[in-house]
Nucleic acid binder design. Structure first.
Lengths: 200, 200
DNA sequence: TTCATACTTGACAGCATGTCAATTGACAAA
DNA sequence: TTTGTCAATTGACATGCTGTCAAGTATGAA
């Protein structure tokens, strides 16, 4: 049972560092200090290994704890901001495995389903924030709940993060700060009281 | 010289239809009605073929003509809207080849450079629109020119379109309409006169 | 001592890209 | 008519990856 963890750990490390190109099964084996075949004793396919790696990552980083402030928020505005903080702050960690999974989506149905499931969870977070705004009557009248959810989901997508960080060279801090402003300006109805978190 | 066109046409057709998985060199050859090896007589690598296909597509759809209304716009606000119309309307056509190119970016430097170059062109379009707003003093004070450009670029990215159309199931019409509203609300300073184009 | 379990070693099939060499067929110029 | 060139064909092959298979090894428990 220890080998399994060694494999997952090695996979994670390679994916996080992984600038140049694809990570091969052989690379992971080497890093974990075992034979390539031993990988297949624990994970039937590359896709399965990647999926399990994302679950492993969730355990490691206690991803549900990150969402606590968002769930505890009193107002819709606070909830929106807390969610941007929580998920936006988690993206850098998911990005390694996520990139690999997204690359596999073209060819591998298994991987596609797994990744889409995880992204659906994020959508639910978006929806909860939007609904909290709606409940407070601070949701902008420009969008329905569904449209606002879709839009927020797209804004906070891994691809969008990738674009801003890697193509535009933004820092993580700038990303969070700007996404908060953007989310606020987009979804909070004009005239709603200004949240303290948004200062400047 | 005719074979070359047949190849490019076949590639385009396959990429446009291409729902299921990757398009192989053999598939393209079959579709074009020639041998797989003949492809390599015209294009050294798969990456090169894809790059040339995007240029071919530009010719076919007279992509520069699409941008004319944007360049001719009198006000910054009009220019922003026209640009969203032009590029947003072109995305469905680029998406087929684009998806293939983006998938190759992980592994192929050549493809990555070519696609990034094309996306850089889009960025210039974004920048021009933002600068036009700035010139009119209708750019929202929340963002610098660079940040606004990066943000608009991300909003109008192919990935964002993909997310909204394929994950959220939006129609193209809804996409254009909503992106216009979003761009307007985000980048146009409060108090600036309302453009006719944005009506409902 | 015996047996099961986890791992290793090495070979191999499948499948894609890209290369190479020999051949065919058409068309043009001497 | 002959010769040369050019585009395309055919078929074999190297490479590099994933995933499979079979046989062997080490460790620890019964």
């Amino acid at each position: 049972m220890q080998t399994r963890s060694k494999i997952l750990q090695a996979t994670l490390e390679l994916l996080e560092a992984g600038e140049g190109g694809e990570i091969r099964m052989g690379d992971i084996a080497k890093r974990a200090g075992i034979s390539r075949q031993a990988l297949y004793l624990h994970f039937a396919t590359r896709a399965e290994l990647l999926v399990e790696t994302t679950f492993y990552l969730d355990e490691l980083s206690e991803s549900d704890k990150r969402l606590e402030p968002s769930r505890k928020a009193k107002t819709g505005i606070e909830r929106l901001e807390a969610f941007v903080d929580a998920w936006g702050g988690y993206i850098p960690a998911v990005y390694g495995p996520g990139r690999a999974m997204m690359a596999m989506m073209e060819t591998d149905d298994e991987a596609a389903k797994a990744w889409n499931q995880r992204m659906q969870d994020v959508r639910e977070g978006c929806e909860a924030a939007i609904k909290a705004l709606k409940k407070d009557k601070t949701l902008s009248p420009a969008y329905s709940i569904n449209d606002a959810t879709d839009l927020l989901w797209a804004m906070l997508s891994v691809r969008n993060w990738e674009q801003l960080i890697h193509q535009s060279g933004w820092t993580q801090k700038k990303y969070i700060k700007t996404m908060k402003i953007l989310a606020y300006n987009t979804f909070v109805a004009a005239g709603a009281e200004i949240s303290k978190g948004i200062s400047k």
